[in-house]
């Protein structure tokens, strides 16, 4: 095989590698984020959301956080409906 022919395969691999490392992936880079904690107060009356009153509505003023009926999921269960 001549040097020129050898170069063909090498050039392709080199260009491919360069492009693979440079190109933007669809959806962009995966941002590495640390674990975090958040809480949502009732936007209507400012009260915190207590476990025993469920997740879907505010126990104090009745404000609806989520207009859905929770079913038995992984961590969230039927019992978490307000």
């Amino acid at each position: 095989m001549s040097e020129n022919e050898k170069k063909r395969a090498l050039t392709y691999v080199e260009k491919l590698k360069e492009k693979a490392l440079q190109q933007k992936n669809y959806g962009g880079e995966v941002k590495k984020e640390d674990a975090g904690m958040d809480a949502r107060d009732c936007p209507n009356c400012g009260a915190g959301r207590a476990f025993r009153h469920g997740l879907t509505a505010c126990a104090y003023c009745g404000f609806v956080f989520m207009e859905i009926k929770l079913t038995d999921g992984i961590h969230i269960k039927k019992g978490n409906n307000s």
Binding site: R40, L55, M66, I68, I74, H75, I76
Partner: peptide, 14 residues
């Protein structure tokens, strides 16, 4: 969808 993130993420798994 009118839900909070933990609810969506469970839905998205189940």
């Amino acid at each position: 969808l009118g839900v909070e993130l933990p609810v969506w993420q469970e839905v998205n798994l189940l």
